[in-house]
Simulated assay, not measured.
Amino acid sequence: MVQDALLDRAFSALSDATRRSILTRLGNGPASIGELAEPAGMTLTGMKKHVKVLEDAGLVSTEKIGRTRQVRLGTERLDDAMAWIGFYQRLWERRLDGLDAYFTLQKGTEK
């Protein structure tokens, strides 16, 4: 049940385009809240809220450095989400491979 709650938070955080763009930006390296807010045309307060959602989901970490808060990309929860997606991807690939084999066999018996 704990794993489900963690995945729920990660997928909920990823459901927002602004938060996904934050993660994309952080793929280039750490950034301050201000550096993240500027290109989004967002207030610092608005950006802090988005970063907080990402932090609560374990997708980013923050650190106070002087007067600014640095945001870094985290991988732990994203790894959990990718593992969950990978499981279902393999499941569906096996099912589709089975369906393909069935139709190939059916096609061969029609002759």
Rank of each mutant, 00 (worst) to 15 (best):
V2H: 04
D4P: 02
L6D: 03
L6P: 01
L6K: 04
L6T: 08
L7S: 01
D8L: 02
D8P: 13
F11W: 00
F11L: 06
F11T: 02
F11V: 00
F11I: 01
S12H: 01
L14V: 13
S15E: 04
D16I: 07
D16Y: 13
T18Y: 11
R19W: 15
R20A: 05
R20M: 06
R20N: 05
R20L: 04
S21C: 06
S21Q: 06
I22Y: 00
I22E: 05
I22R: 04
L23D: 01
T24F: 10
T24S: 07
R25K: 02
L26N: 02
P30M: 09
P30Q: 14
A31G: 00
A31C: 04
G34I: 02
G34E: 13
A37Y: 10
E38Q: 12
P39C: 13
G41Q: 10
G41C: 09
G41D: 07
G41K: 13
T43W: 09
T43Y: 03
L44M: 09
L44K: 15
L44Q: 08
L44H: 15
T45Y: 04
T45E: 01
G46L: 09
M47T: 03
M47V: 15
M47I: 12
K48L: 06
K49L: 01
K49A: 10
K49P: 05
H50M: 06
H50V: 01
V51P: 11
V51Q: 08
K52M: 04
K52H: 09
V53K: 15
E55W: 05
A57M: 04
S61A: 11
K64A: 14
I65P: 13
I65C: 12
I65T: 08
I65E: 06
I65H: 14
G66V: 15
G66K: 07
G66S: 08
G66I: 06
R67T: 04
T68E: 14
T68S: 06
R69V: 00
Q70P: 03
R72T: 11
L73H: 11
L73P: 07
T75Y: 11
T75H: 11
T75R: 11
R77N: 15
R77F: 15
R77C: 11
L78A: 14
D79K: 00
D80G: 14
D80R: 15
M82Y: 08
A83F: 13
W84M: 09
W84S: 12
I85N: 08
G86Y: 11
G86S: 03
G86E: 00
F87N: 12
F87C: 15
R90W: 00
R90S: 07
L91R: 08
W92I: 03
W92Q: 04
R95T: 00
L96V: 02
L96N: 03
D97I: 15
G98K: 14
L99T: 06
L99Y: 12
D100N: 04
A101G: 09
Y102G: 06
Y102W: 11
F103W: 10
T104N: 00
L105G: 03
Q106L: 04
G108F: 04
T109L: 12
T109E: 11
K111F: 14
